[in-house]
Nucleic acid binder design. Structure first.
Ligand SMILES: [Mn+2]
Ligand SMILES: [Mn+2]
Ligand SMILES: [Zn+2]
Ligand SMILES: [Zn+2]
Lengths: 180, 180
DNA sequence: TTGTTTTTGCAAGTCATTTGCAACTAGAGT
DNA sequence: ACTCTAGTTGCAAATGACTTGCAAAAACAA
């Protein structure tokens, strides 16, 4: 019997032909790229750094790819077909992907780290608005802190300055006559 | 023998007379208030909310009062006279103080939360610049994100919006010919 | 197919923070 | 000054996110 390419016998990636022209590949406006093509790009990145394209990794990337908001390790794990891989593998894979710059880590203050697939070679730096009542997350396109970052760096003689910024508040749906 | 006001026999607070005019009470320029007077104000806040002014709490407030940068629970604990109270008590006290708005919590991304005494009834909202190489912390006076906070809140219909913002980079002393 | 390197699963460990509970006080009342 | 009680504390144990050790399993180049 031949070795199956992924876990469960079927590869998540179809043929290149199948992917070409996939209407879901580009979600206009946002610049985000979804669909199989994206997944292939991702696995290529793995190969390029001589990391193995394994079943668990493909599944994890596929889950991340479909998430519109940063997800915790447990959330990613929960979204994978049951028993597909160990929780620890998700931790390890995420660490690898983060190190490769393929995913970005976010911290919303609750105990668990959240991860989002990086789109575009620029990094797609952006921030979030989180509802403290229902945990709804709003993706804030672009960043408005670049200037102050440069100012802070220059004023204090720091190099390679980056920043972490998140907003918290009460979303419209949670404002029904409660605390102001 | 009379009951000692604090732990260890001596109260951290002297008499009001002793405190009045303490030259260390006001550190001009920053608006931060230090010295015994500040400590008395703090204990008053506890009494005002019918929380008990206990030995451990006085010690913890005293340690926080002398810290120029946000400190972790363990750091605060380490700065207290040996065996003065349990680590758990520091956790619980910090939680209480945070709830009362007397201390503010910060998260620099390393596993442990950091706390800083809130100065001024306004809250003294500000941010930090942390060296990713030596952990040096720079206190950034004032906040430059208020406008964008309002914009983000308005644009998304959120109320009571706040933000968390910290900068990370390599400080001058750590820039000796290393990575740029 | 084989051999070498990387990955994975599972168990166990680390570390910050929380919780259960009985013993203990600060502060109010007497 | 003495009593009472709600609020506190210490100690042990629990929780939860995340990491690590190790042998079995899989990827992929030769
Ligand atoms: Mn996002
Ligand atoms: Mn500060
Ligand atoms: Zn930004
Ligand atoms: Zn701010």
């Amino acid at each position: 019997m031949s070795s199956s390419p992924g876990i469960g016998g079927a590869s998540l990636l179809g043929s290149l032909e199948t992917c070409r022209g996939d209407p879901a590949d580009v979600k206009e406006g946002t610049g985000h790229v979804h669909g199989k093509r994206r997944l292939i790009e991702l696995t290529e990145q793995l190969r390029a750094k001589s990391r193995k394209v394994t079943g668990p990794r493909q599944k994890i990337l596929d889950v991340l790819r479909t998430n519109r908001h940063p997800a915790t390790i447990r959330e990613v794990f929960a979204q994978m077909p049951r028993g597909d891989c160990d929780l620890v593998t998700v931790y390890r894979s995420m660490h690898l992907l983060e190190g490769m710059g393929m995913v970005k880590r976010f911290d919303f203050g609750d105990g668990a780290a959240r991860f989002e697939l990086v789109n575009g070679r620029d990094g797609g730096h952006h921030h979030h608005l989180i509802c403290t009542s229902c945990d709804r997350i709003v993706e804030l396109e672009d960043c408005f802190a670049q200037e102050m970052e440069e100012a802070v760096a220059a004023r204090n003689g720091f190099k390679s300055v980056t920043h972490k910024l998140e907003f918290f508040g009460v979303c419209p749906k949670c404002q029904t006559g409660h605390r102001v």
